[in-house]
Design a protein around this nucleic acid. Sequence first.
DNA 1: TAATTATTTGAACGATCGCTCAAATTTAAC
DNA 2: GTTAAATTTGAGCGATCGTTCAAATAATTA
Lengths: 193, 193
Amino acid sequence: MSYPREQSIQQATEVFWLKGYLGTGMRDLQTALDKRPGSIYSAFGSKEGLYLEVLNHYTGVLHGQIMAVANSDTPLQQLREFLRFPLTVEDSAAHKIQCLIVKTQADWAELPEGVKSELQAALAHLREAFQAVILKARSTGELAADIPVERAAMWVQGQFIAMRTLATSVESPASLSWMVDKIVSDLSGEWTQ
Amino acid sequence: MSYPREQSIQQATEVFWLKGYLGTGMRDLQTALDKRPGSIYSAFGSKEGLYLEVLNHYTGVLHGQIMAVANSDTPLQQLREFLRFPLTVEDSAAHKIQCLIVKTQADWAELPEGVKSELQAALAHLREAFQAVILKARSTGELAADIPVERAAMWVQGQFIAMRTLATSVESPASLSWMVDKIVSDLSGEWTQ
DNA sequence: TAATTATTTGAACGATCGCTCAAATTTAAC
DNA sequence: GTTAAATTTGAGCGATCGTTCAAATAATTA
């Protein structure tokens, strides 16, 4: 049950991903969901409430993907494929290259308090998943035993952000796949304490 | 002459940096510049016109800083200090941790065409400066002779973005200085063609 | 000082913003 | 089939958006 609610969240995700939190108007959402304002407000309370559900759903999916990487037998190989994925979206969905969380975070000073705290929580939650990947790769021997786990997790998150941000400003995102290789390679590089 | 114009641009930079392009209202600018709308419009034409001057000024300063790194005798050492700088801003200016260009770029789909093209140009311009740093470091022997210059320049730009983005979501940005060391270290790492 | 030009002022315009709520409609319960 | 509850509708609210322009003021020239 409550199927149309899930559908509304997916349609709203499209809009927020394309236009950002500030850039998205209630009228954009009304069009995308094909619902009148009253329906949206009775279902989600406010624009912020709808966005928070979108963010929660988005983060959950992404977290699941990263945990699947962590739970595989060859986490480092799987991480490579995970990182490459955003570079393969078709032109018509170019807005999906950038991470929705990072995109929203750029408007920081103008965001409602509830959105700010949930963004922080989402980033921390995903960082935990990256940490699980590092830990697993260490246990399989794909990474050295003395790798600083927390730093490496944050670093991977940073690389994820860097690659996707650069990819949005380049003609052909797929041409950046060398960056994926360098990320995996640098993971085994120097980690001076 | 035209001193107050320069001053207006600096004050407007503060506001755009803090609130982003979409998040900044003409009334915010009127307050910051202590000017009435007519004055601003006669001087800059529009909100977009004022932003473009801000962007141009900002890019010029940043470009100059990177070229100074390139023109030093120890470019790699200077690059380290350049990268560390955004991590040292005081709490009261936390918005300056993130790069103004990257911040604006996040609102991509909602930006006027003129702003979009100037943002692309600014990123390309700064990439050229990073390229000059790589070239110089290669000539001083700080970097290997076979480093792929264009890719390395883009990669450094990506690391610059990653570090500053992560730094905005962390309690103490200065605690990320290990990331600067890793960037410099990874520059000498693997660059598989 | 008087005349001319350049700049600044600020009330106000039309458009859009997030959001409300009484009324209409659909769904569920008996 | 009737009634009650839940959901949807959409006109429209007050606030704010970027912008305009006739009038007032300041700066320059004669």
